[in-house]
Every structure is written in C-alpha cells, then in structure tokens.
C-alpha cells in the first residue's frame, strides 16, 4: 500500500505539488491523470524515492522510500524519458539489473524475449524509440517488482505491442498482486486497465475515486420538453455543464442515474436520454469545473 501524506514540493519559487494525499491499495492499477504541468512526474518521482518532498511524507507498506534500498529493491520506476548506459547491449543492461535487483528473474527474462523478439546482442542505442521502450518494459518486468511506476509508458508503442504489454501487466497484477501507478495523456489507453483514478491539477489532487464509481456518478443528459419548461427544472441537480442545441438541452450532471431520471421525469420530458461518460469526457468536465475549461480560441 502506498500512502502519501500531504506532500508538497517546490522547485525554485513554483509550487509543483500542494498537500497531495493519495492512497494506492496493493494489487491496484492506479491511473494518475492531470493537465500538462500538473505535477504528475514530480509526484511519481517522489513516490519512487528519487525526489524528496519539502513537506509531508510518503510511505510504502509503512516505510519511508527516499534512499531506502530495501524498498527500492521491490520497485521499478519507468520514466518517460528512458535512460540506458551508452554503448550497452540489452544483454549487458540485463546483467547490470540482475546485479542490482535481488528479485531479478533470469528465466522470465528469456521467456519475455520470445514475446518482444529483439536481438539481445544489439546495442540499445541502435533500436528505434518504440523498441527502446519495449526494452525498458522487458527489463522492468524481469525485476519482478512489487510496485511498478509508469510515467507515460505507452508513448511510441504500436497497438500490437501495447496490447501485449497491457496483458503482461494484468497477469502480474492477477498472479502476484503487483501494484501499478500509471500516468498517461491518452485516457482511452488506460481506461480499460485501471481500477482507480486520481486527477491532479496545478499541484493539487482534485479527486481520487474508484473508476466505476466515477463513471456511475456522472452522466450526460439529453432532454427535451414539449413546452418551454420552468427554470426550476435544474434546481437541485449538480450541473457541470449545460448547452441548448435547438429544442434539445444537453447537460452534464453529477449524481446517480435513478435520482437524475426521477427528478427530470417530474417535468414530463418528451425526450430523456442518459449516457455514461467516457473517462476522457469526465476528465474534460471535471477540469472545466476546476477552471481549466476548453475554450475554442479563434486565431
């Protein structure tokens, strides 16, 4: 279990993180979302024990992380900008990791080669960007981490490899309760594997929720009335967004489906449709609520 307690971090004068408190259960896949520059990478670096928070503390299974080799042996941080020793081949890099990580699994390393089909004797720098990322995953999964922290991990990977890697991740979660924290801009990409979502905005954690609760708690409503309804139709509902398209009103409403439907039916609508939102839409509207709205700027 990863617990962060009111973490704050400043770089120079800018407050990158402000009192962030998050909890990641063991065996969970936690999706960390956020606007650009929200502080996702900084937060991940702190969780990985690379950066030290100015204030607050982070514990993994009750222990502090920063500069603690015992905790770090169980953890792998896959950064968004990959780093390999120059001139090293995959084999040499694997040897280095084998000596560094006590849980390194050589058998698994060879098994994964069949999956990735990359030449072990080739220098890593000669591979393409996407292939280098595959190498990083290959090495990361061979260290048998209990905690895997992935910063924009699917960047530059094709659809087939993405699917393969997700499948590997899910297997590790199912078989040995590996915990994953994953950040991504492509929300569709992580929607199917995450069970928990945290949204970070300007250094603050806006919300942290079970993904199914998140989805069943916000709806897109399309409604039309025969006569022009009274304004009180929307009273008592938590409206995130509302727009009129001809005679149909489109609104994003927070709350349970039954409650919204029973509320609106009092006014006898001619059309009443409720749709769940995709993760992408939830992100956009929650952000809009936090003052980070999409505005179409004419240039």
């Amino acid at each position: 279990m990863i617990v962060s307690n009111s973490i704050s971090k400043k770089y120079e004068k800018s407050h990158v993180l402000q009192h962030v408190g998050l909890q990641v259960r063991k065996g969970s896949i936690y999706g960390l979302l956020g606007s650009n520059g929200a502080g996702k990478t900084t937060l991940m670096k702190i969780i990985a024990g690379i950066a030290r928070p100015d204030d607050g503390e982070i514990t993994i299974d009750g222990k502090g992380v920063f500069e603690d080799t015992e905790v770090k042996a169980k953890m792998f941080f896959l950064s968004d900008s990959l780093y390999f020793f120059s001139q090293y081949t995959i084999k040499q890099m694997a040897d280095f990791f084998r000596d560094t990580y006590p849980n390194w699994n050589q058998e698994r390393f060879f098994k994964l080669q069949q999956l990735f089909q990359l030449d072990m004797k080739k220098k890593i720098s000669q591979f393409s960007k996407g292939m280098q990322r595959q190498v990083a995953f290959w090495l990361a999964l061979s260290t048998m981490p209990e905690y895997l922290i992935l910063d924009e991990p699917f960047d530059g990977l094709d659809a087939v490899i993405r699917k393969k890697i997700k499948n590997l991740l899910v297997q590790d979660v199912a078989e040995r309760e590996m915990t994953i924290i994953i950040s991504s801009h492509n929300l569709r990409e992580i929607e199917d594997i995450c069970d928990y979502i945290g949204i970070l905005h300007q250094g603050k954690l806006l919300l942290e929720k079970d993904i199914d609760d998140l989805k069943s708690d916000i709806h897109k409503v399309q409604v039309a009335f025969r006569e022009k309804p009274d304004t009180e139709v929307w009273d008592g509902l938590d409206i995130l967004y509302k727009e009129k398209r001809g005679s149909v009103i489109l609104a994003i409403v927070r709350g349970k489906e039954e409650r919204i439907v029973s509320h609106l039916e009092q006014f006898h609508p001619v059309i009443l449709d409720l749709l769940p939102l995709t993760l992408e839409e939830i992100f956009v509207y929650e952000m809009g609520d936090a003052g980070y709205a999409i505005e179409n700027i004419l240039v």
């Binding site: 065996g27 969970s28 896949i29 699917k163 997700k166 499948n167 899910v170 297997q171 979660v173 199912a174 078989e175 199917d192 594997i193 995450c194 069970d195 199914d212």
Partner: peptide, 18 residues
C-alpha cells in the same frame, strides 16, 4: 478464474473480482 479472464480480456483483475 479471475486470473484467466483478466488475461483473456486484458482487463483489471480487481474489476472481475468486483
């Protein structure tokens, strides 16, 4: 089993459990 289904469908095992 949760494990098998998670792998077949590539979805989170916790979701299946739920």
């Amino acid at each position: 089993s949760v494990r098998v289904l998670a792998q077949q469908l590539t979805i989170n095992p916790n979701t299946i459990q739920k």
